[in-house]
Design a protein around this nucleic acid. Structure first.
Length: 334
DNA sequence: GGGGTAAATACTTGCCT
DNA sequence: AGGCAAGTATTTACCCC
């Protein structure tokens, strides 16, 4: 993996920034920049507050000061080779970590015609057939390459079954490749590692996905998955925080159609509690639901514990056990 | 409906074989 | 890889205000 990814792994917590920002970049309609170094971004680095620079040729937004890559999925909007035949730097499709050969396969066409679309001579045809066979064999010859190909295929299948975003799938692909490089799954099921990569990517991106949900479309047992996940975390030393209840707050709030003020209160209460680590080891949905209830009390909203418990799929008792402590944490920040 | 207690159950973790 | 025990969190049943 490149130096860029190294920097990224150290700052896993910025995964969220990548996702939220890439969309903004793709939809950007600002004029192209002619300079080679790229233009200065309006935004600032989330880590050191330095200036961000967009480098179209590399397809990334990076901090000038500390080098943190905030986004490496932006579109290259320079003119394509079609509009400038002399520009050999840009040709073919963009590369993607989702395929074992980065999407840059050399494929010998299946038809028996040459570039001028003329039929090949029989002798030449046999030769092309032989080349085709060997090309196919070489592409997936090494076992590692084969399991990579299989794994990424599985990953795509599961991501589709779980209806996950493309960016999440890309993150999972990168994690799976790192696992492959580190030989995490030697002697273990590739599928378990795939499932674990997907789950790790979801956790990093703050996507509320439970262990049961990821293992559902997978053919591995829950126990095998858990082993693979633990191995993945330790071997790649991924830093993954406890599941973040904040993601649930937004969802529950909209399902309950509570006011904007209530939601803001709930978020504030939750942030205070998170700062004190209150949420660690507790059911994220339970904490989120309790924060909403606290928000409703503070704003005098007419929502019962039972209403919230129903949308959060938890018991009213859980709300009662948490909301007082959440309010205490909010009133008396550490 | 809100608030509580006690017991049952679920889940995690560490340890052992 | 599986079983067990201990600890913690959550749920259920039930009560009172």
């Amino acid at each position: 993996m490149s130096r860029r990814t190294t920097r990224r792994t150290e700052t896993h917590s910025h995964a969220k920034h990548q996702h939220s920002r890439s969309r903004a970049d793709e939809s950007s309609t600002e004029p192209r920049d002619a300079s080679e170094r790229g233009r200065i971004d309006r935004r600032h680095c989330p880590e050191c507050d330095g200036r961000l620079r967009t480098d179209r040729s590399r397809g990334e937004v990076a901090c000038e000061q500390c080098g943190l890559v905030v986004d490496e999925t932006i579109l290259d909007r320079r003119p394509s080779r079609q509009s400038d035949p002399t520009d050999c730097q840009r040709f073919g499709s963009p590369t993607t970590p989702q395929y074992h050969d980065d999407g840059l396969a050399t494929v010998i066409a299946a038809s028996d015609r040459d570039a001028q679309n003329k039929r090949l001579q029989p002798r030449k045809r046999r030769r092309v057939e032989r080349l085709r066979t060997w090309n196919r064999r070489f592409m997936t010859r090494q076992p590692a390459e084969r399991s990579l190909q299989f794994g990424l295929g599985e990953l795509g299948r599961m991501a589709a079954a779980l209806e996950l975003s493309d960016s999440l799938r890309e993150t999972a692909s990168v994690i799976f490749r790192q696992a492959q490089d580190a030989e995490v799954h030697l002697g273990r099921s590739v599928e378990a590692t795939v499932t674990a990569s997907l789950f790790a990517a979801a956790r990093q991106a703050g996507v509320p996905l439970t262990m049961d949900e990821v293992t559902a479309p997978s053919r591995v047992s829950r126990a095998a998955f858990e082993r693979a996940y633990r191995n993945l975390i330790t071997e790649l030393s991924l830093e993954i925080g406890p599941p973040d209840p904040s993601n649930h707050v937004t969802r529950f709030a909209s399902e309950l159609s509570v006011s904007e003020r209530v939601q803001r209160r709930a978020t504030a209460v939750l942030d205070a509690a998170k700062a004190q680590g209150y949420h660690v080891g507790k059911h994220p949905a339970g904490i989120a639901a309790s924060a909403i209830y606290a928000g409703c009390l503070l704003e005098d909203a007419d929502v019962t514990q039972a209403d919230i418990a129903a949308v959060a799929d938890i018991s009213t008792m859980t709300i009662r056990t948490h909301y007082q402590e959440l309010l205490d944490a909010w009133r008396d920040p550490a």
